[in-house]
Design a protein around this nucleic acid. Structure first.
Lengths: 193, 193
DNA sequence: CGCGCGATTGAGTAATTTCAAATCTAGTGG
DNA sequence: CCACTAGATTTGAAATTACTCAATCGCGCG
């Protein structure tokens, strides 16, 4: 049984884009699973399956890519009300190339690829919801991409600090550095100013 | 009237993801406009409206961001069967922040944001189509992003050359450099090997 | 008290940029 | 067919930025 504060928060999340009656919500939720993860647990592991897409009720995760040199590149932090997965693997039903790791204890609703496709097919409204979500995810990534090409490291650091001040309280500086694509030494030298 | 080779190519493009009857195709096309652009014409100009999303029947375009220093950063090349726009502006119906410029004479089918939303609302199948397109666009961008964080310039150059050899015949090296996020001088020094 | 982890600092090195100049190339008019 | 020009490309040298590697610092916790 899913706690009512979770279903209520999820309903609110859906209602940012579509109208949802209580019975519809119940139907939608029947496609999802409720799960809890502890700090340091993995939602997804490289080489394993990326069976689920996760909506975070609470907690904090990082998804990252590990290069040949063994260096981690953080692609995304996800927190309350965000979605996360290894979408390349999820959509193509191939083994994951990313890890998704809990930085804090995390509570989620998650949906398998199969269920997601079924839900979209059976409920036009939800296809609409996920289309809109995909669009805004694309825009967010594009903004981040342009930011990384256009601004220097200091500017990117300042922008992140301005946009997500809370993040700096919740994760080690080394994670911020990895997210910005610089070494922690370089990041450290920026803090001066 | 849209030439039949264009509608046929578009039908084939749709059928990669959904089934489309001839009457459905006709209905779908009623939401699109057929247009031709000459080399150096702009599909979208910074500060103007990004009213349309463009599907390229033939030709080649670049979308780029111009930074404060006046430097162009090429975000995407689009060619046959690709879609292009300034999607941030398109989806939010705000003024464009990107330019989209024709590198060759270009023939398109284009759809306004309003028409796209109408079409999706009236035809579940097309909502599905655009959701799938958004998903694959996201994945492509994420791959490019990870590539830029993980590989050095030489590796990115080699990968691009391998993936899109035709592109190197069709655009000046300076454009490739801008796309890769390096100066043309640096790119030039890589060609040696 | 001392261990361990995150963060910082320093010095030398590698990659890329900037600015300037030289070279190459395709298209044009004579 | 050739000279000429504009644009594209390459080359050189100095300056900048970030990286690596190593050492040090600061602090919470057993």
């Amino acid at each position: 049984m899913i706690p009512s504060e979770v279903t209520a928060a999820f309903k609110k999340h859906l209602e940012a884009l579509i109208e949802v009656s209580d019975s519809e919500l119940e139907f939608i939720l029947s496609f999802f699973e409720y799960r809890k993860f502890k700090k340091h647990q993995f939602l997804i592991q490289k080489g394993g399956t990326a069976e689920y897409s996760y909506w975070l009720y609470e907690g904090l995760t990082k998804s990252f890519f590990t290069d040949e040199a063994g260096k981690e590149h953080i692609l995304q932090f996800a927190m309350e009300n965000w979605w996360t997965s290894d979408y390349e693997a999820y959509f193509s039903e191939q083994p994951a190339t990313l890890d998704v790791d809990c930085i804090e204890n995390t509570t989620v609703l998650c949906i398998s690829y199969q269920n997601r496709e079924k839900l979209c097919a059976q409920m036009h409204k939800m296809e609409h919801f996920f289309r809109k979500k995909a669009n805004s995810g694309y825009i967010a990534l594009q903004k981040r991409f342009l930011n990384s090409y256009t601004n220097n490291t200091k500017e990117r650091y300042d922008l992140l600090l301005k946009q997500y001040p809370a993040l700096f309280q919740r994760v080690p500086k080394a994670f911020i550095a990895s997210y910005l694509g610089v070494t922690r030494e370089t990041l450290s030298r920026f803090q001066e100013s």
